[in-house]
């Protein structure tokens, strides 16, 4: 894997979008494969963080990636663990560099795997950490701007793939109109709507975002359009998982369920996530 080659961001983005749109349990691995195919990375893996910081390996493109994760979580040390702990990106140009003293125990073990550059990105929905994307390459050197852009886009796609995994939408992503990459995450109203759904249906942030997305699929609308409706109080999610159009949206009519079933898209879109 040589550095210096141009990253084709358009093809990477398309591969990531395809991976997420395909959905299902293979989505996360497809995201990792896109990362290795279109970025100068040797391998990539995704580890999910479940309750109370329990890690669960989700997928890895190769044995070395899997081994790197295993080492870190076994030792409780390393860039991956640090990213888990802090919620921050950790970029290590060369884990074998003697000047790299942050993780002495892990560094010694990692050297045996042949990995040099290690780049870890937290996967989170606001403050809720759901996992990490761990990329490595067998040559030392920092990420250049293009590599970094691509890696961050990969991390955004990985977030969606994990939402699919942990909060599978009954509707499936077929006929998706929203580009399921990171672009929706730019918009303030998506996060505001996520907060409102959290309060309406007593969900955590990842579940609320997953529901927002599942609804946008079933309604054939973009996630930002749906978020706009939630923020404008035209659409709400009830604790039992049922969506309703809020008619005039008069604040205070909190018990009004489906008082104005304007269109069929307000039907139950799936079972409530457990």
């Amino acid at each position: 894997m040589g550095g210096g080659c141009e990253v084709d961001q358009a093809r990477l983005s398309q591969a990531l979008a395809d991976a997420v749109a395909a959905g299902g349990s293979e989505a996360a691995l497809a995201v990792c494969r896109a990362c290795v195919e279109w970025l100068p990375m040797t391998g990539a893996s995704i580890t999910m963080m479940t309750v109370a910081e329990v890690q669960e390996p989700v997928c890895a493109t190769d044995a070395v990636s899997a081994r790197i994760d295993e080492l870190q979580f076994g030792l409780g040390d390393g860039p991956c663990v640090e990213s888990f702990r802090t919620g921050r990106a950790v970029l290590v140009p060369d884990i074998a560099d003697p000047a790299e003293t942050r993780w002495p125990v892990f560094a010694a073990a990692a050297a045996a795997t042949g990995a040099r550059g290690m780049f870890v990105f937290p996967l989170q929905v606001g403050g809720a950490r759901i996992g990490v994307l761990d990329c490595y390459r067998d040559a030392p050197g920092p990420l250049d701007d293009e590599d970094l852009t691509g890696a961050l886009r990969t991390a955004d796609a990985a977030v969606w793939s994990l939402l699919d995994r942990t909060h599978p939408g009954g509707d499936g992503p077929s006929g998706s109109v929203s580009a399921p990459d990171g672009s929706a995450l730019v918009r303030a109203e998506v996060h505001q709507a996520t907060g409102m759904l959290m309060a309406q249906a007593r969900l955590d942030a990842p579940s609320a975002l997953a529901r927002l997305r599942a609804y946008s699929f079933s309604a054939g609308r973009t996630i930002t359009e749906v978020a706009d409706d939630v923020v404008a109080r035209r659409l709400r999610l009830h604790p039992d998982g049922v969506w309703s159009n809020a008619g005039s949206g008069h604040p205070g009519q909190r018990d009004a369920r489906s008082d104005d079933p304007v269109d069929s898209s307000s039907r139950d879109d799936e079972e409530k996530p457990s």
Binding site: G127, H191, Q192, G195, M196, M198, A199
Partner: peptide
């Protein structure tokens, strides 16, 4: 933004 949504 999420917290604003929760409070709102």
């Amino acid at each position: 933004e999420q917290a604003k949504g929760v409070l709102a």
